[in-house]
Structure formats: structure tokens, C-alpha cells
Design a protein around this nucleic acid. Sequence first.
DNA 1: ATCCATTGCGTAACAGCGTTACCTTACGCC
DNA 2: GGCGTAAGGTAACGCTGTTACGCAATGGAT
Lengths: 241, 241
Amino acid sequence: MSPRQADPGARTGLIEAGARIIAVEGPAAVSARRLGREVGASTSAVYTHFGGMAEFRRAVRGEGFARLATHLDAVPITDDPVADLTRLGWAYCTNALTNPHLYRVMFMEAPIDPADAQTGWDTFERLVSTVQRCMDAGRFVRCPTALHGAEQIWTMTHGVVSVVLSGMIDLDQAEKLLNDMGASVFVGLGDSWNDAGRSIAAGRPSNMGVLAAIRTAPSPSRARPSTGRTSGPPGGKHQSR
Amino acid sequence: MSPRQADPGARTGLIEAGARIIAVEGPAAVSARRLGREVGASTSAVYTHFGGMAEFRRAVRGEGFARLATHLDAVPITDDPVADLTRLGWAYCTNALTNPHLYRVMFMEAPIDPADAQTGWDTFERLVSTVQRCMDAGRFVRCPTALHGAEQIWTMTHGVVSVVLSGMIDLDQAEKLLNDMGASVFVGLGDSWNDAGRSIAAGRPSNMGVLAAIRTAPSPSRARPSTGRTSGPPGGKHQSR
DNA sequence: ATCCATTGCGTAACAGCGTTACCTTACGCC
DNA sequence: GGCGTAAGGTAACGCTGTTACGCAATGGAT
């Protein structure tokens, strides 16, 4: 007694439509009706394939992690693991800043449940193993475990990315922050200032900058045409007190 | 020709109701109808006082910044500016983790416009001036400007807080990260390892931990009763490769 | 004191949202 | 070939933000 079986392509079609809508118009534009219209189905498609919008959003988040993993895996492995770490950081930033809405859905929405956290850490496996290579190479001599080092590097990078997405600092400052804090964290993990500086310079993307493309195409989503000033943090006169 | 003038208390009443609902039930529970019901008015109150839900949310965000400023201003000023900086960091974390929903609204939602970014930096004035004191005391000898140092410290702290809120790491790991990365950043700004360690120890909240209260009351909002495990990052077997 | 322009604000309607009950339809096994 | 099962469309429910409309209240001008 095998009844009609669901179209296997429909599920991935919905997820891709969701990711596309999020990328272009933001998470608010994703609705069951819109998704149905987009794939030529009705609202109930979301319910037969996912059980509800909440589960659907989880699936889209998983797609986001998969895409991030693809970006990270594209980073080559060289004999300078700290430079590789730097390259992973830039790849992470590029992925996040070219798909800000998807990044927000992945890391900045309501707390994800433990299973999703595991998914996140699985995609960071590449980061953890690179930190391990830094330890094996005698660069991160003060790093207790690869996971702890990876947590530091990811937290720092995520902090910078997230602060750029919030509009509190601009891309130029973010670049400075990543360079300076990256060096500080690497040294804190045991590298020497000279070696860290050399590896960070080596890991700097050749087509400087990767972020230039993002800078010229400021907002791939916000419908608001422009409020005028681009501002950033408080001007230069901000030498404190 | 002066017509009936609006109740001046209605505006603040709406904002406070919004902040309260966000804190308890999350941003999704805030609606024009709910707000009207809450203050004994109708949906149009939001429109006469704010012009729409978007403007209203901006006002609530401003309220969040005001509360954060209050928390930061409560931190005493001592003769160890780096310890003061540490205390500011803990105050920031306590504020964020006791009001996670409000924090999310302030820093993790759609890009705020330049005026709001200015508001944010105004509430960080206290942080900037404390970094300046660290420079004046000869502690942050490698820090080019107080604003740059403040950006580093805030970005790092926000990164950790935000990663806790995302559920990817737990509070114990966050505490380690804040201590370790805080030391790295302080040293990167020019402090010595010994001085940084001493000041961080001095700035550690006496009632250790401030976060214990948060840990015991895990989630002041999520209606979901419990999915079972509390997990966190991947278990201990995660020593990489 | 009266009047009236002006604005606050409640009511009701609109379109769109997530979700679900109901029903038709298409499929694989007997 | 027919039947049972599940896919998936239709339509409704209550919710949302937003707005047009109308009544109520108010302070200056008369």
C-alpha cells in the first residue's frame, strides 16, 4: 500500500527559494504563501515538507551552514597554518558580508537548539583542524585545545562581522579591527608578534580588497533608497573625554 | 488655534510597555494591538505618537541604549583604569544576558541608520573615556586612539555575548573566552601580560559569578518548555582531527 | 462666554500572515 | 483494475500593520 510520494525536488526547491528570497529581500519577505507562489505550489507545501514555518527556517539555516562550509573548504592548505587561519577568516567575512541576511538568520536570530549548534560546530571543523595544525607547528604554544583556540578566533571574527552588519562600524574600520585583533588573539594563543604579522600579511587576500566589491554594492537588500549620509561611527573629533 | 494636545505620558508608557513585552515574551509579541491593550488605548496610539511600528521599534531601541548607559555609568572609577575596563565589560555582559531580547533588538536586527549608530556610540562614551585613561596611565602604549581601542574591546565583548545568545557556546566557555581574549586584546593594545592579568583579576565581579543567576534562570523568555539536553558545543572528544 | 479650527484617538475596514480542516487527486501494491 | 494512502489545493480562522473616517476635546480668537 504505497500511496503517492512527495516530490523530492520540491523540498530543496523550497529551501533554495527561501534562501534566495532571504538574500534579496530579507527574512521578513519569506512567507508560506510567497514560497508556494515561488515554486508553483500552495501554502500547504511548506507543511507537507517541513511541518511549519519554524521547521522550514531551520532547514534554510542548515542550507546557510552548508554554503558557509563550501566557502571554508575552498580555502587552500599551505605550510603556513596561521596564514591559512587568516584566509579562513577572510573567507568567513566574505561569505557573511555578501549574504548578510542569510548570516543574520544563521547566527543572530532566536536561540537555536542544541542540534543546530552541533551543525554549526560541524561546519567549523575546518577551522578547528587548522588551529590544531598551528599547535602542531609550534605556533600556538599557549593554546590549551584546538577547540578553545577556534572559539576565540570565531568569536572575534563573528564579533567584527556582526558589528558591521549592525551598522555601528564601517568596512574600513572592520578591516583594521580584524588585522589588529587577529594579531592580538594569535599572539595570545602563543604565536610571536613577528610570525603573526607575517602570516596575517601572507593570508591577506591578493585582490585587495575582497570587501571592495561589497563596499561598492552597499546593501543587497534594504529597499530604503538612501537616507543621505553614510556616516559610520562618530567623526574624527572623537578623541574621547 | 491650539487643539487637544497628546498625553505626554502615553509615549513613554508605550515605550516601557514595549520594552517589558520584549523582555518577557520577545520582540514577536510586540504588536500595535497588544500595545494599545497594554496601556489602555487603541492601535492608533502607536501611529499618533510614533508614526508606525518601525519608528516605535526605533524608540524602544533608544530606551535599550539608555538602560545600557545606566548600567555602564554605575561602574565605579578607580585608579586602575584597566580593571575599570574589565568591570565595564562585565556590566555590559550582565545587562545583555539579563535582557537578551532587548539586546538582540539593539544590536542584532536589521541595520540601524546612521543616527542610531550615533546613539550607540554616545552610550559607549564611558567606554571610550576609560580607554583614554588607560592610555594616559601608560598602560595602552600601542593604542593609536581611544576610539580604536574601544572598538576592539566592544567588538570582542559583543562577539562573546552574541555567540552565547546564539546558543553556540555556553556561559562557562564565554567566561573563559572573555578572560583570555580580554587579556590578549589588552596586551595587543600595549599592556603587559602581568599587568593585564592583575587588572582582569581585580575587575572580576566579587559575587562570582554575576552570570550564576543567569545560568540558573536559563531563559527568561523562550516559551518552549525544554527540548531535553542543554548541550553546548560538541562534547569533550573534540580535540580535533 | 462662545465658537471653531485643530488635533488626539477609537472604530472599522483592508490586505496579508501562519495554520488547519477538508477535500480532491495521483500513485503503488494487491 | 481497483483500492488505500498520502500529497497537496482550497478555504477558513484569528492574528498582524496600516489607514480612512468620525467623534471628542481643547485653547485661542472673538
